[in-house]
Simulated scan of single mutants.
Amino acid sequence: MPATTERTSSTHVHELLLHDSPDELVAAAVPFLRAGLDAGESAVIATGDASCALLREALDDDERVVVIPRSEVYRIRTPTALTTVRRLVEQQVAAGSTRVRVVGETDFGTTPRDWLEWQRYEAVVNEALAPLPLWGLCAYDTGRLADELITTGLRTHPFVHTPAGRSANPRFVDPADFLRSLPVPVEPLEDTAPLLRVDDVREFSGLRRAVAGVLAGLGGDHDLLEDLHLAIDEMSSNAVRHGGPPVTLRLWAGPDRVVCRISDGGTGMDEPFAGYGPAHGEDLSRGGMGLWLARQLCDHVDVIDDGGGLTVRLTTSLH
């Protein structure tokens, strides 16, 4: 497949680099970063420590290269990761850069449940970062990542890196369709008796007290449980305001996590990108921040539209 022509530097380019060795990574990423520096663009490394060391050495520790610890981008929750990238681009452009080139290695985590949040992220960035002067080269190590994650890369990146340059990716799918195709994970705790069950949420002060009482008895990390409590409050309020009755709530806890399921009887919501930014953009005074806030406060947020209303499932670790 022929390489594509250069796109304008004012829009996001999301490119996949599949490699199976450190040498292959260096051979692709170093010319990419050097070309950016030569063109007056910013060059950023946001990879794991081993890859970062290799790239910095190959670049002769060029002080113009910006190095960001991967944990500052990828092991925080996904809406915060998007905000981190936006701020990076804004800062570099304000300093005079015409575009920001980033070599990144997504940290998908260690379990399929962790993977899911970052699989979603790889699709969402195509929409959320589209207007930015950003060129991301996402490095996927085919010898280390699971086949499922390699497939995710191929389905979420409009471009692939080849020896001839950047080429259109024939396996790329529409990001909204990709998000809709992802399965809703099974949560075994939902097959057990809930610690709290409310069948018709109407009065919020009583609900807040009931949730607080259950969470206080779990003995988990106070800050994590406070964050979950706030997310539950936001999602319950959203369900009452925007969904249809009845609004129900179930809360479970296991040795390592808490799960809360909030459902309404409304018409549902087919908005795959919901909650990855404020609903009304920079104008926070207009509201629309509930799901965005929940995604920042909880480890996992699943939005489930099963044709009988809308369910939001929140999961947070206890420690």
Rank of each mutant, 00 (worst) to 15 (best):
L116M: 13
L293N: 13
D107K: 08
P185K: 03
H161L: 05
M269Q: 11
P246I: 09
T192Y: 09
D191C: 07
V73C: 00
H19Q: 04
L228N: 04
V301T: 15
E72F: 00
R180F: 04
V258N: 03
E122L: 01
T311N: 04
P31V: 12
A128C: 08
P175G: 03
T84C: 07
Q91P: 00
E63T: 15
G48S: 04
I45E: 01
R166Q: 12
A58W: 14
A29P: 06
S71F: 00
L284D: 04
P272D: 14
V240G: 03
A95V: 10
D61P: 06
V198Q: 14
L33P: 08
P245H: 02
I262F: 05
R144H: 08
S10K: 00
L196Y: 12
A210E: 09
D49A: 15
P245D: 07
A50G: 01
V186A: 15
P272V: 11
L134W: 13
R113L: 14
P131W: 00
G36M: 02
G265M: 05
V66S: 12
V125E: 02
I76Y: 01
E105H: 03
P112N: 07
D23H: 10
D200C: 10
I262E: 06
E117L: 13
R295E: 00
V125L: 03
R257H: 07
T151P: 00
P158T: 02
R87N: 14
D256A: 14
A294Q: 11
H280P: 03
D61Y: 07
A29R: 14
M269D: 05
T47I: 15
G277L: 13
D174W: 05
P188Y: 08
S285H: 12
A139F: 01
A146I: 14
A95E: 12
L25I: 12
D200W: 04
G307K: 03
